[in-house]
């Protein structure tokens, strides 16, 4: 399936990527080529096949409900671009 520029802009928006008009043209072409490659899958009949999400079929192991983490706020906050009073700062969120 060929991807057009408006689709590129839509998925770029979903992915929170800023894409210029010029880039949208460029990505539309390469994404279309990739999807063409991907669509070779459709040659195979998979109606009777269960999807495989995990390469191993061992079930999830559950951990005990214990608090073992200690406070590393200062270390973590030192990595952040903007903080104040122990909070991460972002442009105003409107609900």
């Amino acid at each position: 399936m060929a991807v057009d520029e408006s689709t590129v802009r839509y998925i770029a928006g979903l992915s929170r990527l800023a894409i210029s008009n010029h880039e949208a043209v460029h990505y539309a072409a390469s994404l279309s080529r990739i999807l063409k490659l991907v669509e070779q899958m459709h040659a195979v009949d998979t109606r009777q096949v269960e999807p495989l999400a995990h390469p191993q079929d061992s079930p999830l192991t559950l951990r005990d409900d214990q608090v073992t983490e200690t406070d590393h706020r200062d270390t973590f906050m030192a990595l952040a671009p903007a903080t104040e009073d122990g909070l991460y700062l972002v442009p105003k969120v409107i609900e």
Partner: peptide
């Protein structure tokens, strides 16, 4: 006592981002 996917505490009212 701890979070669903980590071992940090769930207690209410701690100083911001310390848990």
């Amino acid at each position: 006592r701890s979070k669903i996917f980590s071992s940090a505490a769930t207690a209410f009212g701690a100083a911001p981002n310390t848990q």
